[in-house]
Design a protein around this nucleic acid. Structure first.
Lengths: 201, 201
DNA sequence: CAAGTGACGACAGAACCTGTCGTCAACGAC
DNA sequence: GTCGTTGACGACAGGTTCTGTCGTCACTTG
């Protein structure tokens, strides 16, 4: 075995990604990953909590990056613009594009991996909300701003995938305007409908 | 064994919930659940895809309920009001309150269960979006409306937990107004900031 | 009453994950 | 330089989850 060869975690990550690409996630065993990295199965679990986690090492870095970016936004900025500005500074968190594409394809093909991705996103969402609260916003506003920012990011990403030539800034503005329109429509409907119900209170 | 005793799935659900309550989710094995239900471990997997799924049987019913409720909303209603109106008709999908509280506590204490809950929510979100598209809205608007509706539901639920006396309708209106304010602030910031940037295009 | 169907038990086995312990290299203190 | 400490690793055992397969038994249908 390549004991003491150094960078065990990196070797495991590379071996895992290669094997997932070659034969699929569920057809590769942890034992195979460890073998290709010249380690034992037991050592895999010393570096990763479980088999899925080998694909989600970067999520902590992304969170750190976003939180740092939030700190550099001017203090008088509103919660939603703060989050969107922070997001604009974190384009993919280093990592080669090809790596991200491959990783994304693997995750899309496996429900268990999607589950892990969703909980990572929820964790990130909570961290962003807490960061906004620390900037003086109340909890409800912070959570709403986070939810809206993620909705904008999701829609913008989808539109960018469909048209890679488009200007990101313009796409964000368009998505944001669409979101505001839907929200305004919701409020208009409510305030118009039950002004009587409110008055009975 | 209680072979042919009937309602095997219900017996397994009850046995599982009781055991999770008594000794925690991860300290109860599928073999124990099956034994208490007078069945074998193999039969458990005939009724549930995996150990977690025994806690998420009702999610399909909730989805069906919401989709049916959407169909009964007047056709000229906007996307966000449609979803909120549908949600108002699905108060907990039958099930005794105590059952839901216990289930919720079990899930909150176990990350793997939270993962499953999140993917169920994502699946529900997708179904709602598709339903809106079928009503004539475009995909982007439908997805935004779904995201906003879920944000409103989440915030409203939190506020209702904190004050069970409050009127639900009023809480929804308040949350919706807050959301609109955050969204409007985001748009104002953008349109005010880069009117120059837009003009350069 | 014969054939089909579905729920179930029994058994085997792969893969995931954990606990435990001994070994070996690196590093600092003396 | 030796010695104790620390951390990465191998080796081994074992529990749990989940799947494949097959035979059995009750119910249903013609």
């Amino acid at each position: 075995m390549a004991r003491w060869a150094g960078n065990a975690k990196g070797r495991l990550e590379k071996a895992a990604l290669d094997l997932f690409d070659e034969q699929g996630y569920d057809r590769t065993t942890v034992a195979q990953i460890a073998q290709r990295a010249d380690l034992t199965e037991r050592s895999f679990y010393r570096w990763f909590a479980d088999k899925r986690e080998v694909l989600f090492g970067g999520s902590q870095e992304l969170e750190d990056r976003l939180l740092a970016a939030i700190d550099e936004v001017p203090a008088d900025t509103g919660p939603l613009p703060t989050l969107l500005a922070a997001w604009a500074t974190a384009p993919e968190v280093i990592r080669p594009r090809e790596f991200l594409r491959l990783r994304s394809a693997i995750i899309a093909a496996n429900p268990p991996l999607q589950e892990r991705e969703l909980i990572k996103l929820a964790s990130l969402s909570e961290a962003l909300t807490v960061a906004l609260v620390r900037r003086g916003h109340d909890r409800a506003t912070a959570q709403l701003a986070t939810d809206l920012a993620l909705a904008v990011v999701r829609l913008t990403s989808a539109r960018w995938m469909a048209d890679e030539q488009a200007d990101i800034t313009t796409l964000v503005e368009t998505s944001l305007a669409d979101l505001a329109a839907v929200a305004a429509d919701g409020v208009a409907h409510i305030s118009g409908r039950d002004s009587s119900a409110v008055s009975t209170k």
